[in-house]
Amino acid sequence: MQSTSIPVTSENVGKHALLFDLDGTLAPIAATPQQAHVPPDTLDVLGRLEKRVGGALAIVSGRPLAQIDALVRPMVLTGAGLHGAQWREPDGTLHEMPVDTAAVARMVEALAPLAERWPGTQLEHKGLSLAFHYRNAPDHEQQVRVAAEAAMQPHADRFVLQPGKMVVEIKPRHASKAAAISRLMGLAPFAGRVPVFAGDDLTDEAGFEAVKAMGGVTIKIGEGESVADWRFPTPAALAAWLALL
Rank of each mutant, 00 (worst) to 15 (best):
K177L: 06
Q142N: 13
I181P: 00
H174Q: 15
I170K: 08
P74T: 11
R193Y: 08
L130S: 05
E11K: 13
G192T: 11
N136I: 05
P90Y: 03
K165S: 12
H37L: 12
N12G: 10
P64Q: 13
Q35T: 04
P74C: 09
M107L: 11
Q2W: 04
F197W: 04
V76A: 09
A175H: 12
P189C: 10
V217F: 01
A150F: 09
A240I: 01
P40S: 11
G54T: 08
D229I: 04
R73Q: 11
A156G: 03
L77T: 10
I221Y: 01
L202K: 04
A70S: 15
L71N: 06
L19V: 05
E11I: 13
E11P: 00
D229V: 03
W230T: 06
T9L: 08
Q142T: 15
V227T: 15
L111M: 11
D200F: 01
A210V: 01
A80G: 14
R88E: 07
V144S: 06
L77M: 13
V194M: 12
V168Q: 14
V167C: 07
L128I: 00
R145H: 09
L46Q: 01
L242C: 06
E169F: 05
T203D: 01
S61H: 07
K220S: 03
A210F: 00
E109R: 14
V72G: 06
W241E: 02
A105N: 12
F132Y: 15
Q162G: 01
Q2G: 12
I181G: 00
L49M: 08
G92T: 11
D201K: 00
P163H: 12
I6R: 08
I6K: 05
G120M: 01
T203N: 03
D157R: 14
H37S: 15
E124G: 08
A103I: 14
G55K: 04
R145G: 00
A228Y: 02
Y134K: 08
A228M: 09
P235I: 01
P90F: 04
E223K: 14
A102C: 03
L43A: 04
A175D: 06
F132I: 13
N136M: 15
P163G: 07
G62N: 08
A58F: 04
P233M: 10
T4Q: 14
A188F: 05
A30N: 07
D157P: 00
I170C: 10
A102F: 09
P113W: 11
Y134N: 08
A103K: 14
E205M: 02
I221V: 15
L111T: 08
T234W: 02
A56T: 09
P189D: 11
M97Q: 15
G186H: 12
P90M: 08
T42S: 07
L57I: 08
R106Y: 03
H95Q: 07
D100K: 12
K177N: 05
S129L: 07
V167L: 09
P33N: 03
L187R: 14
E109P: 00
P163N: 10
P189L: 10
L19D: 04
T101V: 15
L18R: 06
I221N: 00
A105Q: 15
Q2E: 13
D91A: 10
V45K: 00
L22K: 05
A85W: 05
R48C: 00
P7S: 11
L187T: 08
H155K: 09
G24D: 03
F20Q: 03
